[in-house]
Nucleic acid binder design. Structure first.
Lengths: 189, 189
DNA sequence: CGCGCGATTGAGTAATTTCAAATCTAGTGG
DNA sequence: CCACTAGATTTGAAATTACTCAATCGCGCG
């Protein structure tokens, strides 16, 4: 199962067995049941998580309107945390909960920093990963600003076809920044 | 003037004179006049740019609707490039032009990679910078999805008050994902 | 002085939201 | 295996937000 993590890092840079085992030794395994919270608003965020199995969503709820904004889904091979709170050591402004039973690998900020210092490859991996994240976010931002509800949904289907039958439509609507009713009307035609 | 770059990197990690001079030696200075293009759609992107002086905008124009989406402004102390094209060595999908006369420091991808390998601090700097970028993009995305036109504008004023009188309202409207008419109506009341 | 660009204003229109109600579905306990 | 319930989805109608198009205004610059 930890092979998934190895495979993931090796998309950026190859590792020796020794290097990978050293990296892996800094992670703790964690299991959570469906509906359980991984990160809760107003609490400190001690870990970043790599998803080995399952599906989660990260969302923030606007206290005023009561609406939810889902800013990320994560399935096998993805990372998830409240990046800002994790890096700054501040309290989380978002929630993360499990859409399915989950198995995760967790790492603390200090272990991550230590890994980066000990192993240049790991620092490099983090750099590249963050840059890919920026690129993906930029595309999503553009789609959100430029595309109509229909275009956003069609793009989502193209990009994440495997999420369609794993995640309730309500959540997908929220991720795409539209009401569930609007999303529902899109595929009547 | 290159002190700005030093100061910028030292927000992440302190540098010796020697280290900074080594870093600086990989950058080329470049000057551009107002309205000049720094990066043009469909061309290769050989450099990432650090802004020493001036103001630029990065935008993509939708060929279908003819509308512009401004995905970034950059002023002194900011970086700008087509990140995706720069990293992947592919052709740009966006344009970047100068809103004012500009002075830039340019670095190639191979020099940047070389710097990262030679100097752990530089690799680390890139990692942290990319992570900050992700955090900022996530916030902007949230504001764009959750906020009304008015809220987005008010947030912009709070966050970038110094850009208000430097950038035409038309561009700000495009950055905020609304028509210039809508923006104009916001501050009539 | 007059040109041209950016900003503003008005009126009608299109896309999406909101609220309310009806329908469907999967999982649970009997 | 069936009835029941909670959650998810769909549908309809009214309301809202922001857009488009068109006209006008204001101002800096040659």
């Amino acid at each position: 199962m930890s092979q998934l993590l190895r495979h993931h890092i090796e998309m950026v840079t190859p590792l020796t067995d020794e290097e990978f085992n050293y990296i892996l030794s800094h992670f703790k395994a964690r299991k959570l049941k469906k509906h359980a919270y991984l990160i809760h608003e107003d609490e400190y965020v001690n870990y970043a998580y790599f998803v080995v199995k399952g599906c989660l969503k990260a969302f923030s709820s606007d206290s005023k309107s009561g609406k939810e904004f889902i800013y990320q889904f994560a399935i096998e091979g993805w990372w998830i945390t409240d990046q800002e709170a994790f890096f700054r050591g501040s309290k989380s402004t978002i929630n993360i909960d499990c859409i399915e039973n989950c198995e995760l690998l967790a790492i603390t900020l200090s272990d991550q920093e230590k890994l980066g210092k000990d192993l240049w490859k790991y620092e490099h991996f983090m750099q590249v990963k963050a840059n890919w994240g920026c690129i993906a976010l930029r595309k999503r931002l553009q789609m959100m600003i430029m595309g109509s509800a229909k275009e956003r949904y069609e793009q989502f289907i193209l990009q994440y076809p495997h999420l369609l039958d794993r995640i309730p439509k309500t959540f997908i609507a929220s991720y795409l920044g539209m009401s569930r009713e609007t999303l529902s009307r899109l595929y009547s035609f």
